[in-house]
């Protein structure tokens, strides 16, 4: 069943247009990885879905209704949660409060504080600390947990691995299947292709604001991915990556 259907999406900031006619479909239950180089428009795409960047053209149909004009704070209630780049925890709230405020929209579902702590046990001893004293990995776990608290149908993960040690990234990625099992469809943005392909059931590659490749990780040759990532002519990717 199609959960999200984006058609002909244009978006940008001021004079700068970041996305050009994006078409992306997300099926319920899958884990879609969006990859692309720095500045390809991945983060903008997620921010448009979350309502932080306005849609200039095109449609965003989520669960059968066009939400292009819906305000950011209403989209959480519909079941879209963004884990923003840079975690963006609330510095003057404790870890517990950061998690609880994730449930502000009050959507019912299986995720509550206990369920989140089961997936990220490392948070449990930190609950009463102010969030700004946490390490990067701990903050990322809280940020994902905070998004889960809203019981999303679609969870958008922006650069989970950014600035974290590989071992920390690995443990965070190990939690992702639990998200899917909990009923959330996952759309994750990554620069780290290897990490993304390990968990993704499907991938989309952006290049300079346009979709340059779409397919299943198992079916797309690595050389094509590299070509789509760097904008090289098809077939020349193997040379570039070697």
């Amino acid at each position: 069943m199609t959960l999200l259907e984006v058609r002909g999406l244009d978006a940008g900031y001021g004079d700068f247009q970041a996305l050009f006619g994006i078409d992306v479909t997300v099926t319920e239950g899958e884990t879609l990885a969006m990859i692309g180089a720095n500045g390809a428009g991945k983060t903008t795409f997620l921010r448009v879905l979350a309502g932080q960047v306005p849609t200039r053209a095109g449609s965003i149909v989520f669960d059968g209704t066009d939400i292009a004009g819906v305000k950011a704070h209403r989209r959480v209630g519909l079941g879209i949660a963004l884990v923003p780049e840079g975690r963006m925890l609330f510095g003057s709230l404790t870890v517990r409060e950061n998690l609880i405020i994730g449930a502000h929209a009050g959507r019912p579902g299986r995720w509550d504080l206990e369920a989140v702590l089961d997936v990220f046990p490392l948070i449990r001893p930190l609950l009463e600390r102010p969030s700004h004293v946490l390490s990067g990995g701990e903050q990322q776990a809280v940020a994902i947990g905070r998004a889960l608290m809203s019981n999303p149908r679609l969870i958008l993960l922006d650069e989970v691995s950014l600035g974290l040690a590989p071992v920390v990234v690995k443990s965070l990625y190990q939690a992702l299947p639990a998200l899917s099992e909990g009923g959330a469809t996952v759309l994750l943005v990554e620069q780290d292709i290897g990490q993304a392909l390990e968990v993704a059931s499907r991938l989309v590659c952006l290049l300079e604001g346009r979709v340059s490749l779409e397919g299943k990780p198992a079916e797309v040759p690595r050389s094509d991915i590299t070509a789509a990532y760097f904008g090289l002519p098809a077939g020349s990717g193997s040379e570039a990556s070697s």
């Binding site: 979350a50 309502g51 932080q52 305000k71 950011a72 704070h73 209403r74 959480v76 209630g77 949660a81 963004l82 923003p84 963006m88 609330f90 510095g91 003057s92 709230l93 409060e97 609880i100 405020i101 994730g102 502000h104 929209a105 009050g106 905070r146 809203s150």
Partner: peptide
């Protein structure tokens, strides 16, 4: 809690469903 969150970071507070 919502007041403090908005005071910290309004765009992220909106992501929590806070108007």
């Amino acid at each position: 809690r919502a007041f403090r969150a908005v005071s910290d970071d309004p765009p992220t507070a909106r992501l929590m469903g806070i108007n």
